[in-house]
């Protein structure tokens, strides 16, 4: 829009500019030049592949195959008929169902505890944030050794108090829950930071007003001020945690590979095995579409709740 294109370059200003040059000056191409790299890359690396994954899910394409053909919903038929798919979907939902409430409540509890006093705030914040920073793969390996049936710390402690601990990650009744525990351990600090930001933004005067209005106990003030004002943040944290735990892959792949006997098989891990180990791109794409549907659903819920949250504010 602005006429910044160097239509006449360094040529002296005194020259009257022909009408055509004026035209060009107004229809500046500069903005398009500025966004061109980003737009191109977006199309190639993001939007194109997104359309591609949906299209692929209707094909029988396998990496390296000379051709592909449209097979309609065959991939989806196969998927819905496959017990492993249902197991992996169920496991994913269980994982999300445990990690989200677990990590959100611990995150909230830590944030409230830290904010309820003034001493050592930043030290606590740092400590609780450490798991977020640490490379998850490295820490998964550490957890694996901590959960080692014989030499691990967890079973060692249990032995001290006379309990024979299970072989956590090798036992199909405990493996998924062990992964959940790692998930909560890693995500709580992240949620804490979001909650702390929410708590700091609550005006101090509201607490003073609540006290004057007769909310004498800390619990009363929490119910009257903190919780309602923290609601938008809470919704937000819940959805973010949901999306993040739906993507669980690292710990599964390095610690259990979906085992024992598919008890920790999750969606993204199935997608990885089908798409990148068996190179069944079409089938992997169909799994991706299922995954995407869930993410989209969560996002929709978020925007719905966010809209309602605005009315509260």
């Amino acid at each position: 829009m602005s006429d910044n294109v160097a239509t006449i370059g360094g040529v002296t200003v005194r020259l009257p500019v022909p009408a055509t040059a004026q035209r060009r000056g107004r229809l500046s191409l500069t903005p398009y030049g500025l966004v061109a790299p980003a737009l191109t890359l977006m199309l190639i690396m993001l939007l194109g592949p997104l359309a591609g994954v949906i299209a692929l899910s209707f094909t029988d394409y396998q990496l390296g195959a000379p051709s592909l053909s449209w097979i309609g919903l065959a991939n989806y038929h196969e998927m819905f008929g496959d017990r492993v798919f249902w197991t992996s979907l169920r496991n994913t939902l269980v994982y999300v169902g445990i990690v989200v409430p677990g990590a959100v409540t611990t995150g909230l509890a830590i944030a409230l505890l830290i904010q309820s006093g003034t001493s050592l705030r930043s030290l606590y914040r740092t400590i609780y944030f450490l798991p977020v920073m640490a490379t998850l793969i490295a820490m998964a390996v550490v957890w694996e050794f901590m959960l080692h049936p014989q030499f691990g710390l967890v079973n060692g402690v249990l032995r001290e108090i006379g309990i024979a601990g299970p072989s956590w990650l090798q036992d199909r009744s405990t493996a998924l829950y062990a992964l959940c525990a790692i998930g909560i351990w890693q995500a709580a600090g992240f949620n804490m930071v979001l909650f702390l930001a929410g708590l700091v933004s609550i005006p101090k005067q509201l607490y003073e007003a609540a006290e004057i209005d007769g909310a004498a106990s800390a619990w009363a003030r929490f119910r009257l001020v903190t919780w309602p004002l923290l609601r938008p943040v809470t919704t937000f944290v819940v959805v973010i945690s949901g999306i993040r735990s739906f993507q669980v892959f690292d710990t599964v792949h390095v610690l259990t590979k979906g085992g024992p006997s598919k008890s920790t098989e999750v969606l993204i891990h199935s997608m990885y095995t089908e798409g990148f180990e068996f190179f069944r791109s079409g089938y992997g794409a169909a799994l991706t579409v299922v995954f995407l549907t869930f993410i989209l659903l969560l996002t929709l819920i978020k925007s719905r709740l966010a809209d309602r949250g605005v009315q509260y504010a």
């Binding site: 592949p49 997104l50 591609g52 994954v53 692929l56 999306i243 791109s281």
Partner: peptide
Amino acid sequence: LFGILIPPQATAIPVFLL
């Protein structure tokens, strides 16, 4: 804004093929 919603795993297969 739409792009922000797309999780990286979703585009993995096509990008890999590319």
